[in-house]
């Protein structure tokens, strides 16, 4: 153990954050203000998610941290190390074994269960912000469910690109009430948000926490004649052969060769261990 209080934050702060989380769960999709603390990492590196994780973790928990689906990227590694050091909790890369998963920009491919909590890092929690800069006004719009503006954004997409071009941070309506920014996850992940696990969202710089309780209705906004589509690259994973996972495109050389691989590294690894293979399996191995 270290000289840190468990999970870095003091108990009063964690209590304050838990209150915000509970309120968020009670009012799904509503952005609860909270007194975000300075964390030993810069804003934009997941300080909101880290504070929510810190208030959520218990000594018995097993933590997984992913960044764009990967366990081995800088952000994921440093946050995992942070909690290993300050909370001394078990960590894992395996989705099934984790009880708390902090994520940046992805939902794991494996279906989550009622025993799990998914914590999102959120840069800008206000889905209306890019169209309406005034906080007083956006709060009022949420309060009065004046969400026409959200569709203006989608309208602009279609008029400029012929289709809804918004590919990530695709706005959703939670339980028929609040319009919510799902954080910059690809819209491929939107349908997964109706899940068994608890979903918590933390925005450190913007000082907002919001939540989606298990089995809550989450509807992606769309038009009758331009329905929502969860899209992904039209390929199979070149390593594990999965045709149903979200893919990253990797440039291989200067000759324009490229490969598509699962963005969820744990999912890809477990499939390969189970004997699945893709187009480039041999060379990669």
């Amino acid at each position: 153990m270290s000289d840190y209080n468990f999970a870095y934050l003091d108990e009063q702060t964690k209590r304050m954050i838990r209150r915000a989380i509970l309120k968020g769960l009670a009012v799904p999709g509503y952005q609860v203000p909270f007194a975000s603390r300075e964390m030993p990492m810069p804003y934009g590196w997941g300080t909101g998610g880290v504070q929510v994780s810190a208030a959520t973790l218990t000594p018995d928990d097993t933590l997984k941290v992913i960044d764009q689906g990967a366990d081995d990227t800088t952000n994921a590694v440093s946050i995992r190390k942070f909690f290993e050091k300050t909370a001394g909790v078990e960590t894992t890369e395996e989705t099934e074994k984790a009880s708390v998963i902090q994520t940046r920009h992805r939902i794991p491919e494996a279906e989550l269960t009622e025993d799990q909590i998914l914590v999102y890092q959120v840069p800008i929690p206000e889905p209306l912000r890019f169209l309406e800069p005034r906080e007083t006004e956006t709060r009022k719009m949420h309060a009065l469910q004046e969400y026409g503006l959200m569709h203006v954004k989608l309208y602009e997409d279609i008029s400029q690109h012929g289709a809804i071009a918004t590919a990530y941070a695709y706005p959703v309506k939670v339980e028929g009430r609040y319009v919510m920014d799902p954080s910059p996850i690809p819209k491929f992940d939107n349908p997964k948000m109706e899940m068994a696990a608890i979903q918590l969202f933390g925005a450190g710089r913007e000082q907002r926490i919001y939540a989606v309780p298990p089995y809550t209705q989450v509807v992606s906004l769309d038009f009758e004649d331009y329905p929502f589509e969860a899209s992904k690259a039209e390929h199979a994973c070149d390593l594990c052969g999965s045709e149903h996972s979200y893919l990253d495109e990797v440039i291989l050389d200067d000759a324009g060769n490229r490969m598509f691989v699962c963005s969820d590294t744990d999912y890809c690894r477990s499939r390969r261990e189970a004997g699945h293979s893709g187009r480039l399996s041999e060379e990669a191995a």
Binding site: E146, L149, Y155, S159, F223, E224, D225
Partner: peptide, 17 residues
């Protein structure tokens, strides 16, 4: 178009066409 459409969408019109 978006400027004109906003009030329509605000009162619940959800058909782009």
């Amino acid at each position: 178009g978006g400027n004109i459409g906003e009030r329509l969408m605000a009162v619940g019109d959800r058909h782009y066409g």
